[in-house]
Amino acid sequence: MATWRLVSMILFWQVAASIIYYSVFAATPFFRDEFQLSGFAVGLVVTSLTLGYAVFLLPLGAMTDRFGERRTLTVGILGLSVGALLVTVAWSYPALLLAAFLLGSLYGTAMPGTNKAIFDNVAAGRQNLAMGIKQVGVTAGSGISALLVTWIAGILFWQAGFITAAIFGLLAAVLFFGFYRDGGGSGAASYPDFGGLARNKPYRSLTIAGFFLGAGLFTTTGYTILFIDESIGATVAYGGVVLALLQVSGSVGRVLTGWLSDVLPGEPRKSIGAILLIQTIAGVILFVVVAFSDTVLTATAALIGLGFFVLGFTGVYYSCMATLVGPDEMGSATGGGQLSLTSGALVAPPAFGYLADIYGYQASWLLLAGFGCLAIGFIIYVIRTEPPVTRTAAAVE
Rank of each mutant, 00 (worst) to 15 (best):
G214H: 08
R391K: 06
G250A: 08
S18E: 08
D65I: 03
L57G: 01
G305V: 10
L217R: 00
G187I: 11
M131E: 05
S340N: 04
S340C: 07
I155K: 13
I20A: 12
V248F: 11
V55P: 00
T300N: 11
A124W: 02
A348S: 14
F179A: 12
Q127N: 05
A166K: 08
K116G: 02
I275L: 14
R254F: 04
T88E: 03
I167F: 13
G336P: 01
G68F: 09
T47D: 00
G187W: 06
T280L: 11
L102Y: 08
G187F: 06
F177R: 10
D357Q: 14
T50I: 13
T74Q: 12
L106V: 13
I379Y: 05
G187T: 09
V24L: 10
V296K: 07
L256P: 01
D328A: 12
A17N: 13
K134V: 08
F211D: 00
M111C: 01
L106R: 05
G132K: 03
G178W: 10
L367E: 04
A146W: 08
C373M: 15
F227Q: 04
Y361R: 11
G137V: 14
T298G: 04
G79Y: 05
V82H: 01
G185F: 06
R66K: 15
S332W: 01
I358W: 06
F119S: 04
P327T: 10
V122H: 04
P268H: 13
T74F: 06
T3E: 14
L346A: 10
T392N: 01
T323A: 14
G104S: 11
I272K: 05
I383M: 15
M9S: 07
V248K: 05
T334Y: 00
R181T: 14
M321W: 01
G305I: 07
R269A: 13
T50R: 02
L44N: 07
L206M: 09
G183R: 15
G68K: 06
L171D: 06
V149K: 11
M131K: 09
F378D: 02
Q279G: 12
L341Y: 09
F194T: 03
V248R: 03
I379S: 05
Q362C: 06
G336F: 00
L226T: 04
A84V: 11
